[in-house]
Design a protein around this nucleic acid. Structure first.
Lengths: 248, 248
DNA sequence: GAGTGGTCTAGACCACAGA
DNA sequence: CTGTGGTCTAGACCACTCT
């Protein structure tokens, strides 16, 4: 066991429960336990790691607070999966005027191709110069209306073959696809918002007149191991919708 | 002690630690312990409530996770105060292009008056028909530039005298003022964003040409006891700034 | 040195899910 | 019925803050 017990505390000392948490997280990242699978019980993990059940419990509760696992009494501790429900709770922020969550209902891929990463791509996705990316353009509907244009940039190395067929393989629910087809779990997203004016292309795609205001959402999606794996720019008509953000 | 122990579990049964948490929260709301004051130690609270120290600990840790209190080893458990630092961490979302937090540096009150609440005011602040509100209009600077117009609506009953002198008493840091002058602690905010076009008045105040896009932030601030106490509409020029939102 | 919260352990009983 | 996580308790030792 590689755990630090009291006595050999180095400069990067971590409490036992944090070490246990890290080990469990690593095994989830490695795919030892896959999404929707049940982890061993607290007592079994405690035996494996040579710590008390209470210490494992704290580690698991921390991971649950970070939405890495889901704990259910009587059932066990599951690895969180990027299913539509999770997406709704964690990654959807658009609502209608009354505040009810609006999940995009469909999408149409306009283009999908592999190309050399631009400087912006390199910066956002922390790639090395010369890396390739897959770039997808699509439009999405919110409610009844085509209200969203999206440009999605992915490291080509992580998503081999995704660009095949010009986007014929690209489903609507991308995060679920990343998980199921590439074993990449989106853990959290960082978003930066601004107001922009619709250019001629946006206006045409969304049926607006150029110059109308759009909400631009610049989102980087971060995987379980903390690396940026998707950069997405969403432009959204907010005449009938809102972006909600409830913060403490 | 009004605590439910095992046996008299009604339909609204709550675990002990949740009951203790509620009692502590209520005493903070009542002002028994004021912002920046130290609560009694875990053992003293455990004695007062007739539970074990571990149960109090869980209650306090929960309150700390909700930013109601701050726990410091060796020092004690403090009631969270709306100081500039807290404001920066919890309520500021504007950054510059590089992502560094931009806190508004100054403000100028344009108008401040008491009036009958509009229908929108009633809905947002959950007031009864006929209630009065205080309505403040001001502009704020971000970095070097006047980039923000704000309309703030407050229930007049909660903030007596705030409108005196047409806003001469209205300082820049409002949440701190609510806390210090009116004992009202802003606990969290709910925000809804959309993109709008600058009207003639916005354009004039911010030095823009009408029609330019602005980010509109519609924010309701919620006090510790869960009631809406401020409604604020912020319009912001996002040419040089971004609104950040980091969500799990 | 005295007092605080932070960590770790051990054991008890309960509520829930599923065979 | 068995096994799971949820709650509650009790006690030990450590790290930090302040006097």
């Amino acid at each position: 066991m590689a755990l630090n017990f009291t006595g050999d505390e180095g400069p990067d000392f971590q409490p036992l429960y944090a070490q246990v948490k890290g080990l469990i997280l690593q095994r989830i990242i490695d795919g030892d336990w896959k999404p929707d699978e049940v982890l061993p019980s607290e007592f079994k993990l405690a035996d494996q790691f040579g710590v008390s059940q209470g210490t494992v419990r704290k580690a698991l509760n921390d991971l649950a607070a970070e939405n890495v696992v889901i704990r259910r009494q009587g059932k066990g501790t599951l690895v969180a999966a990027n299913n539509p429900l999770r997406e709704l709770f964690h990654f959807i922020h658009m609502t209608d005027r009354e505040g009810a969550l609006q999940l995009p209902t469909s999408s149409e891929v306009l283009s999908c191709e592999r190309r050399r990463a631009s400087d912006d791509d390199l910066g956002r996705l922390k790639l090395r110069r010369g890396a390739d990316v897959i770039r997808i353009e699509r439009i999405r509907t919110l409610g009844e209306k085509t209200a969203i244009t999206e440009t999605i940039v992915l490291p080509a190395r992580l998503f081999p073959g995704l660009e095949a067929g010009g986007g014929a393989n690209v489903p609507h629910a991308l995060y679920q696809h990343y998980q199921d087809a590439y074993a990449i779990a989106i853990h959290r997203v960082e978003e930066a918002l601004r107001a922009v004016t619709a250019g001629p292309r946006d206006a045409e795609l969304l049926g607006l007149t150029p110059g109308q205001p759009l909400l631009e959402i610049d989102r980087v999606a971060i995987s379980l191991d903390g690396k940026p794996v998707e950069w997405r720019i969403t432009r959204c008509d907010t005449q009938d919708t809102r972006y909600v953000s409830s913060l403490v």
